[in-house]
Design a binder for these strands. Structure first.
Length: 489
RNA sequence: GGCGGUAUCGUCUAGGGGACUAGGACACAGCCCUCUCAAGGCUGGAACACGGGUUCGAAUCCCGUUACCGCUACCA
């Protein structure tokens, strides 16, 4: 291969919905390869289907790519703006005799297709309009009869060396003379794609393998238009847990869904990158974007469709949650805390060091951003609620626990510096003195401080809460326990 | 139906003729650590779709079968 110049790639979604994880993965691979090779990554919005394309969808694609951290080079190309060139290219094919006018109506075609189906034979356009005399064509055009432009598929075989599949070949006899320009003058997909890819000087087309059967048609168009062929790389599909194509019934399929679910973009990207690609050999699965760029290569692209496993995504998110620099995590969490009514952005900014330390405590036991918010309550609210389950388990005997908590409070109150080592030392000494294990002190204390049976290490909790609030919460718990003991008789 | 593609633990994957008693990760189970929960560590169960070749030797190469997926529009 004489190809040594960095490739020009493109991601070409059609704005007919949200950015799907499959589309996101295609965008990611194009982007990774461009960044890896010093190539160019372009974005083209394929909005030629005016019936289905919407501005909202276009925005959703931009938003999705932005969230993932994928950018593109040069101006965004809107396919719809290239109508004139599409028509010119189609006219050129007509002029050079590589395409012809077809006057068959959709209704007629439909009819013939049904007949073929009834006879269980494959329908293929029979070229009847290609046999029309020139004068007849002229007459019909002059008469204003609507017509499409069909590409005349030559004899032979069309093949290419796919970057992931190696050689793929199609006998031309299996390809029918396909329409390139509708009767209303707008282009059909395959034609618009080729016209645009040529104009954008795309040298490597990387897309889903559902386009494999479009590829011979497109190659034929390149050749007829006298343009150099790009290389092709067809990526395997992403399926749902049941092995079927990913759809709404599998739950979330739009990248925006995962954003709202509390997934970090770096985790999403990492997870998607490992679907249909692997660095090969032994490798660490948790990778940053930079590491992905450094490792990416078309050599390790897989051929088999993969199943999207949300469980593994969550695990991966947990990994990233724990590894991302706090300064990057903070802006993702803050809006959620504010939204939950736990704090204001100003408040958090005012005690940044404390806030970061808290985040560090909570993120280890979180898989989703929401897990952090859910755990954060006790550190922000003035009043806490006691979880019934925790109370039932750890405050089972109020008459015993109450005095123990009181002793704990007194011990802590007498403490000099408010730091973990000192807390642990004095509380373990207290446990010894009372003849109980540490857990008998720590567990009821955890409920007193957080209302929960589960939390970060108890000393970390106390540091995060601060001395004053810690002692107040214990006192409050003592009152609560006294009430319980009284109520119980 | 026709054409094309694919086939390693439940899932993501390593593997490119001998290093395979098939490795790792997720999930699952157990154990360790331990103030709880995570995280982490250790252990366990779990796969080369089937049938023929080629070869001294096949998860790896070839053929067939089966299954699954995609395309088969004046959709993209």
């Amino acid at each position: 291969m004489t190809e040594s110049a960095p490739p020009r790639l493109r991601f070409a979604p059609s704005p007919t919905g949200y950015l799907h994880v499959g589309g996101a993965r295609t965008a990611l691979f194009n982007w990774l390869l461009a960044r890896r090779t010093g190539g160019t990554c372009l974005l083209r919005i394929e909005d030629t289907d005016k019936a289905r394309s919407t501005e909202d969808s276009t925005k959703a694609i931009f938003d999705g790519l932005k969230w993932l951290g994928l950018d593109w080079d040069e101006e965004v190309v809107f396919q719809g703006a290239n109508l004139e060139r599409h028509q010119r290219d189609a006219e050129a094919l007509l002029a050079s005799g590589k395409a012809y006018r077809c006057f068959c109506t959709p209704e007629e075609l439909d009819e013939r297709r049904k007949e073929a189906a009834a006879e269980k034979s494959a329908f293929k356009y029979d070229r009847r309009c290609d046999e029309l005399a020139a004068s007849e064509v002229e007459r019909r055009v002059a008469a204003g009869m609507p017509c499409v432009i069909r590409f005349r598929v030559p004899e032979g075989e069309t093949a290419w060396d796919d970057l992931v599949h190696d050689r793929i070949a199609f006998p031309n006899k299996d390809i029918e003379d396909f329409v390139i320009l509708r009767s209303d003058g707008t282009p059909i997909y395959n034609h618009a794609v080729v016209s645009d890819d040529i104009a954008m000087r795309v040298t490597l087309v990387m897309r889903g393998d559902d386009h494999i059967s479009n590829t011979p048609k497109q190659i034929l168009l390149y050749q007829a238009l006298g343009a150099p062929l790009p290389r092709f790389a067809h990526l395997p599909m992403i399926h749902g847990t049941d092995g079927k194509k990913l759809s709404k019934r599998h739950g979330a399929t739009a990248v925006g869904d995962y954003e709202h679910m509390g997934i970090l973009p770096e985790a999403m990207v990492n997870f998607l990158a490992l679907l249909g690609w692997s660095p090969g050999g032994e490798f660490e699965e948790v990778m940053t974007l930079d590491q992905l760029v450094a490792a990416f290569s078309t050599d390790n692209l897989l051929r088999k469709a993969s199943v999207f496993d949300p469980k593994k995504l969550e695990w991966m998110n947990g990994q990233h949650l724990s590894r991302v620099p706090l300064a990057e995590l903070e802006p993702r969490v803050t809006p959620l805390l504010v939204q939950a009514g736990l704090a204001t952005a100003a408040d958090l900014a005012a005690r940044r060091a404390w806030y970061f330390a808290l985040l560090d405590l909570l993120r280890v036991r979180s898989r989703l951003l929401d897990d952090i918010v859910r755990q954060a309550g006790p550190y922000f609210r003035d009043e806490i609620e006691y979880e019934a389950e925790a109370v039932a388990k750890q405050w089972k005997e109020p008459a015993v626990v109450g005095p123990l908590l009181a002793a704990t409070r007194e011990t802590l109150a007498a403490l000099g510096p408010w730091e973990p080592a000192a807390m642990e030392e004095s509380l373990r000494a207290l446990a010894d003195a009372k003849g109980v294990g540490g857990g008998k002190i720590f567990q009821p204390l955890r409920v007193a401080l957080t209302g929960l049976g589960v939390s970060p290490g108890i000393f970390d909790v106390m540091v995060a809460l601060g001395r004053e609030r810690t002692l107040a919460r214990i006192a409050q718990a003592e009152r609560h326990l006294a009430g319980m003991a009284g109520g119980a008789g």
